[in-house]
Design a protein around this nucleic acid. Structure first.
Lengths: 205, 205
DNA sequence: ACCTGAACACCGTTCAAGT
DNA sequence: ACCTGAACACCGTTCAAGT
């Protein structure tokens, strides 16, 4: 009666061969990034938490870099979804839509500082940044500005350059917030909205 | 005749007690950050390069973090000086001055990627970011915008918030450049100047 | 006052061996 | 096909000991 079921058992102690380790490793690592607000976790600690030997993860990821890359890709998916979800349901003023998306971007970063840092870190290289999944996140911004240009809400300009400027601005705000440099003591109060407003003025036709 | 002089000798092999190790460690670490474009150097490798035991640096720095903090502070000094040096000698159009300073900022980052990453990293904490030396760098931007407001070249607004917006924009451009995300393939050509121009429009009165 | 060497508690990764 | 344990080559840091 005390036979351990072959799979899936929250209370199962150690003695099973898992069957699902890849996902468990990924989720454990993600949880650690969330908790510690940094991606400097240890592969051995992940294995420890997952209850497997410290070499077991190597059956599912070539090395730590591969795990980091996978986490970063998931981050870009989550960012894209957060931006998409932020768009108002009913169409309204373009400025509101811009602010909603921009605030959602900054919010994603400040709520997931470790993950956001990882996504833009040098340690996840070129292939992550050029991946469909990360380009898709940038695509939300492209689409937003394209709509604004089409309705005349913002200046007509080369779309990619305009989107790059927006991206740089919200990215800069986000990273400064994350590193604690965008505090009232340094830059005055409500700096995020003020910066977003300045950016919006620059887009005006 | 083959006596080793007590100090200062480029060719001196190992057998001396240095007398100047603190600066040598600092410079060696800085050189490694420059070469490797990252601040993930190893304290032991620094000591190796300096020709001392791997524990010798602990006589001059409490730990690796203290060395990183010192490097970062030096980086803020260098950034401030680069910005100050970029201002045109003879007074001209405010827009030119703005572009000169902004370009100098981005240039500093792209030419010193490892150092710039370190300066804004979480691993040099609050005390570095709140230090006089780093606040002084931000001061160059404050002063620039104050002058612009005074001459009516840009919109009158809360100075610190306006400077924060500028800082976020140039910081965002810089980090995206450093991580290789501001390449023509992704964001179109001449994205830096385009982004700086968009920012400038947002400052217009 | 400064430097060294041994030592400790960790890492990431490889590899033969087990099931 | 997946997992383990020993092993290797590293770290950062501490500390007694040397000069």
């Amino acid at each position: 009666m005390s036979d351990v079921p072959p799979k899936r058992r929250k209370t199962s102690a150690r003695p099973y061969h898992h069957g699902d380790l890849r996902r468990v490793v990924l989720e454990t690592a993600a949880a650690m990034v969330r908790e510690q607000k940094t991606w400097q976790f240890t592969l051995r600690e992940v294995a420890r938490r997952a209850g497997v030997s410290h070499t077991a993860p190597y059956n599912h990821f070539a090395d730590k870099g591969a795990l980091l890359a996978e986490l970063a890709m998931g981050g870009f998916d989550a960012l894209r979804m957060a931006l998409e979800a932020s768009r108002p349901k009913r169409p309204g003023a373009f400025r509101d839509e811009y602010f909603a998306v921009a605030r959602a971007y900054v919010r994603f970063g400040t709520e997931n500082p470790g993950l956001y840092r990882l996504m833009f870190s040098q340690d996840v290289g070129y292939d992550v940044h050029m991946s469909e999944r990360s380009v898709a996140a940038f695509g939300v911004m492209l689409e937003l500005l394209a709509r604004g240009q089409a309705t005349g809400a913002i200046k007509k300009a080369r779309l990619r350059a305009q989107a790059a400027a927006c991206w740089a601005a919200v990215h800069g705000i986000t990273t400064l917030c994350i590193e604690g440099l965008f505090e009232p003591a340094i830059v005055g109060k409500a700096p995020v909205d003020a910066a977003l407003a300045t950016l919006f003025e620059g887009l005006a036709p």
